[in-house]
Amino acid sequence: MKRKIKQPEVKCPYCGRMAVLRDASYVYKENALDKYLYICSGYPECDAYVGVHAGSLRPKGSLANGDLRHKRIETHRLFDAIWKNGIFSRKEAYRWMQDTFSLNSSQAHIGQFSDYRCDCLMNECRKVLQNNHVRTA
């Protein structure tokens, strides 16, 4: 007998409405990369949504509007450059992030970060990349 996966309750931090689980094509049409998204029930007036981990109903982070989604993508690009350029292993890079910002492993996810925390991590990533002679665009 299969167990039904319990869908978490996700609330929009911008307008307070509940998010609904929808097929990603609802937002991205035929360009959908994720299978599902949690989308604010006020969409499109409230432009907040977040992807879902493959094979689960677990959100990849917190709902974010367009500005924060873009900032999280940029933050991940800089952070990933640290391990992709061999400065740290991926595991070591996440440990560095935890140590730098006094986070535990459940808090060290860019998908949970605020605008401010993204700015802080991007600044620290730039320092590490520059100290290791890796160009940032």
Score class of each variant (00 low, 15 high):
T75H: 11
F101I: 06
T75Q: 11
F88A: 02
L78Q: 08
D80C: 01
N85M: 08
Q112L: 12
D80S: 10
C118G: 01
C120P: 00
L103N: 07
K91E: 15
V134Y: 02
N85R: 14
T100G: 01
C125H: 04
A137M: 02
K127D: 14
L121H: 09
D67Q: 15
L63E: 04
H133W: 05
S62Q: 15
D99F: 02
T100F: 02
S106N: 14
F79L: 06
D115P: 00
I73K: 04
S105L: 03
D119Y: 06
A81N: 14
Q112Y: 10
M122Y: 06
L63D: 05
K127L: 13
F88D: 13
K91C: 07
K127W: 03
H133Q: 13
L103S: 03
D80Q: 08
M97C: 04
R117W: 10
T100W: 00
A64E: 08
K71Y: 00
R69G: 00
W96H: 06
K84V: 03
L78D: 10
Q98L: 02
S114V: 01
L121R: 01
V128D: 14
D99V: 01
R135K: 15
D99S: 09
G86E: 04
D115Q: 14
M97R: 00
N104H: 11
R72G: 06
D119M: 09
Q130H: 12
Q107M: 11
R72Y: 10
N131Y: 14
N104M: 01
N123G: 13
N85T: 14
W96P: 08
N132H: 15
R90C: 14
L78V: 01
D115E: 15
I82W: 06
N132Y: 12
G86Y: 07
S106W: 07
G111L: 06
D115K: 15
R90M: 15
Q112G: 04
C120W: 00
Q98V: 01
I110M: 10
A93K: 10
R69L: 01
V134C: 06
H70W: 09
A137S: 08
S105E: 12
F88Q: 06
L78E: 12
Q130A: 13
R69M: 00
S89Q: 07
E124D: 11
R72E: 04
